[in-house]
Amino acid sequence: MPSMALFMTTLGIILGTLTVTSANHWLTAWLGLELNMISILPMIAKQKHPRSAEAATKYFLTQSTASALMLFSSTLNAWQTGSWDITQLNNKLSCILMISALAMKMGAAPTHFWLPEVMQGSTLTTALLITTWQKIAPITLLYMTSNHIETTITLIIGLLSILIGGWGGFNQTQIRKMMAYSSIAHLGWTMTVISIMPNIAITNIIIYMIISTPFFLLLTTTTSKTLQTMTTTWAYAPTTTITLMLLLLSMAGLPPLAGFTPKLLILDSLVTHKLTLTAATMAMLSLLSLTFYLRTTYLLTSTAPPITTQSTMLWRLKPAQNQITTTLAPIALFNITILPALLT
C-alpha cells in the first residue's frame, strides 16, 4: 500500500474511534463507526487475492447491517423518549436492538460468523487491528449504556461466546482463525459482566488487547500462519518462541500470569451478585479454550532441544531476532509479570 494511502487509512481509523469515544449523540457515534469501517476496508482488501476481496465484502456487509440496526435502535429510542443522548437508552426494545448491533460489530456470538473468515483473509497486522482497535468503539458504547442493559441478554451472549469461542478453536490449524475464536471467547467474558461491573469488563478487554498485541507482532516476525510452521520457530528464534508460549498461557488465564487476573475478578463479581451457577458454567466452558491454548504451547515447545523436530523444517529460515523482536520481548514479559501486581 502506498505511504499516503496508508497514512489516510490509519488517520481515518484513529479519528473514527476518537469520534465514538468522545460522542454524546447517537448520530455522532454512528458517524465515527462508519468512518472507522470505511478506513479499514482498504487494509483488508490490499492483498491481491480472492480471499481478501471476500473478507472485505463480508466485513462491509456485516458492519453495514449492524450500523443500520444501530440507527434504527437509536431512532426508536429518540421517538419514544425524545432524547438522542447515548446515556439515555431507556426504551427496552431499543436497548435489546442496540446490544445486538454492537455484538455484531464486535463479533460476539451468535453474530460471530464473519470474524474468523475476515481474519483469515487479512494479514496478521490487519487481524491485530480487527481484534483490538476495532473493538474499542463498540465497547465504549456498551460501557456508556451499561446502566440500561438487560443483564439476562448480556449473560446469554457472553455464555454463547465463551462456548463457541472455545469449541470453534478446537479444529483450527490456522493461527488467525484460532485467534479469532480466542477473541470471541474473551468477548464473552467481557459481555457477561458489562452490565454488572462495567469497570471490570473494561479491565478484561484492555488486558486482552495488551496481551494479544505483542503476540500478533511477534508472529509477523516469524511469518507463521499455521500451527505446523510454528513448530519450527525454536530453531531460529528461541526468544520469540518462549515469549509466544508465555503469552498463550496468559491468554488461557493460568495463574499467576496477567490473563488470570480479570477472569478471577469477573468470577468474583458474578458470585457476589448471586450468579454462582453462571460463574461455574463460565469456568467449565473456559476449559475448551484452554485445550487449544495448551496444544499450541506444546507445539511451540515440543521442538526444543534435545527433542527431535516433529515437522518439516522451512526451506529457508528468516532470522527473527531483529529490532522488533528485541523490543517486543521485554514489553511482553512486562505485561505478563507486572500486571497482576498492579491490579491486586
Rank of each mutant, 00 (worst) to 15 (best):
A68N: 07
L115A: 12
T9P: 05
L227V: 02
T337Q: 03
T241K: 03
L294D: 02
M98G: 02
L71N: 02
H148Y: 11
T297K: 01
T240Q: 08
T126C: 10
T145N: 07
T232I: 09
T111P: 04
A201F: 04
T303E: 04
I139F: 15
R316T: 12
N322T: 14
T132A: 10
H25K: 05
S212C: 08
I38Q: 05
L141T: 01
T65W: 08
K46F: 13
L265K: 13
I184V: 15
M98E: 09
N335D: 07
L249N: 02
Q134I: 03
S83H: 03
C95A: 13
T296K: 03
A280K: 01
F215C: 05
W315K: 15
A5P: 01
K46I: 09
M313E: 14
T327F: 15
A280E: 00
L71Q: 00
M282L: 15
T297I: 05
T229C: 06
T131Q: 10
T213M: 14
H273C: 15
I130F: 03
M37A: 13
L18M: 08
A78V: 02
L246G: 00
A201D: 04
A68I: 13
A137K: 04
N322R: 11
Q228A: 10
G165S: 07
H273W: 15
L287F: 10
F113Y: 15
S311R: 14
T326F: 15
T221Q: 11
I242N: 03
I99K: 06
W315F: 12
E117Q: 09
T291G: 06
L343A: 15
I205A: 09
L76C: 08
A101G: 06
S161I: 08
T87F: 05
L275I: 11
I13L: 13
T326N: 12
M191R: 10
K48S: 11
